[in-house]
Computed example of a mutant assay.
Amino acid sequence: MNQTYGVVAVSAAVVATLVIGSTGLRVSRTTSDFYVASRTVPPYLNAMAVSGEYLSAASFLGIAGLVAAQGVEMLWFPVGYAAGYLVLLAFVAAPLRRSGAYTLPDFADSRLESRAARRVASVLVVGVGWLYLLPQLQGAGLTLGLVTGAPRWLGGVLVAAVVTLAVAAGGMRGITFVQAFQYCLKLAALLVPAIFLVIAWHGDPHPARAVDEPPTFRRHTQVTVESTVRIRIGAPLRAVVTGAVDGVDHDGGRLLLEPGVHEVRAGTTLRFPPTAPVPERETGDEGRDGASGWAAPLSGGKDEHPLYTTYGLICATFLGTMGLPHVLVRFYTNPDGRAARRTTVIVLALVGGFYLLPPLYGLLGRLYAPDLLLTGNTDAAVLVLPERLVG
């Protein structure tokens, strides 16, 4: 990957974020300005800001990676996320806006008239915030590392610094403009490459391979294992190995991997020939494997309760959407309850359109980046596919 272009692109995004965020500094004069933009944000702008906040690295990198690794059952995640906005529309948006509160603990206190409820809400907001930040920082480190070659920790530090500066400079007004800009940037960053990927994919003689057959390497592929893994081989497989497999060191020689489970030590490099099947990472779940498991639409293994698991996943994800503090706080910025409802309807359209793209990346990742299935770095599918298909 061309690291010069990556550095320029990341630098441009950082500068644009800081410049747009600082515009709120000129108009933020009161507490209401800083916390809730004086409750004057129109629905369309607020919807773009909500979508920009919500569609984080964990959403578009993670969903694509989950689809590539575990199959179409992972599409229930975005379904549940979108369903959460329906619940917000029906039960939360308007009452939250009418409360006149600045924060969720304020809302809990005024609604329930309980200081204990306020304290519990404060703890939950901080806890949910930290749990939500972890995958975002991991995604930032992954992205920056792949496109610029920087160490993984630098991505999290950079994101934390930029967000802190943008919030301090412009408050809610500045962040509203920043998040709306970032929604457009994220959509373009996925949509434009997707167009070229589909063009490059068109005419492939095996377009249904991801559904009908287990994944295979399309060309000579070298895979370096970053951490020790256990892999399952279904049929004898030859590979050139540099490193340790099953406790035995190899120095670039050919090795015949017999059917069964093998341990590959961290730092080991394996080179596979074209058409070789991709070894399966051992996860302890024997219930679903191969192409048939990947194409199954219900969550859970053969011996479990897939329909129950699927409905449980949907309920968990839409309740999770309702519990994201940085999403809920945006409804404080609408002029009234009606505007809050309109914001939610627009968000449904924006989020729904966005989520059409990660499944495409997941499918193409299984076809053209099968080495990610072996290393476990399927979150990188969105980032490596343009180079694999287009060059």
Results as ranks from 00 to 15, higher is better:
V125P: 00
A108Q: 06
S99D: 09
R330Q: 15
A57N: 14
E263C: 02
V92L: 15
S227M: 11
E280L: 13
G376P: 13
E304G: 15
R388A: 15
D379R: 04
S299Y: 10
L357A: 11
H220S: 05
S122N: 10
S292I: 02
T283F: 04
I346S: 08
E53W: 12
G320Q: 08
G100Q: 05
L364C: 06
G337R: 07
R232V: 14
S11G: 15
G65C: 11
A161F: 10
E73N: 10
D204I: 02
Q136E: 15
G149S: 03
V245S: 01
R218G: 10
T40R: 14
D204K: 09
D33H: 05
G252Y: 02
T283N: 07
L350W: 06
G149P: 02
I233Y: 12
W76R: 02
A295R: 13
L372T: 12
A83K: 03
V351I: 12
L96A: 09
L96R: 00
S292R: 13
G71W: 04
R271T: 15
S32V: 03
S28R: 03
P215V: 11
P193E: 08
E282V: 14
L133N: 12
F60L: 04
L270I: 08
V261T: 15
Q70N: 10
V245P: 01
A380Y: 01
S110W: 10
Y81M: 12
F177D: 02
E113H: 14
G127S: 11
G365M: 09
K302R: 11
V128S: 13
G287A: 15
P207M: 06
Y54A: 07
A64I: 10
L75Q: 04
H206G: 07
P205G: 11
V50F: 14
D212P: 00
R218N: 05
V10M: 14
Q136N: 13
D33E: 03
A295N: 04
V223K: 01
I314T: 09
Q70D: 14
A239V: 12
T275Q: 12
T143I: 06
L364P: 02
D303R: 13
L383E: 01
V211S: 05
R366A: 09
E263K: 15
I20A: 11
A380L: 04
G171M: 09
V147Q: 01
V8R: 01
N334G: 08
T378W: 02
T275W: 11
G155C: 07
A101Q: 02
A276K: 02
L187D: 00
Y35Q: 10
L385H: 04
G267C: 06
T228L: 05
T343L: 03
M74P: 00
N377K: 10
L298S: 05
V120I: 15
V351F: 14
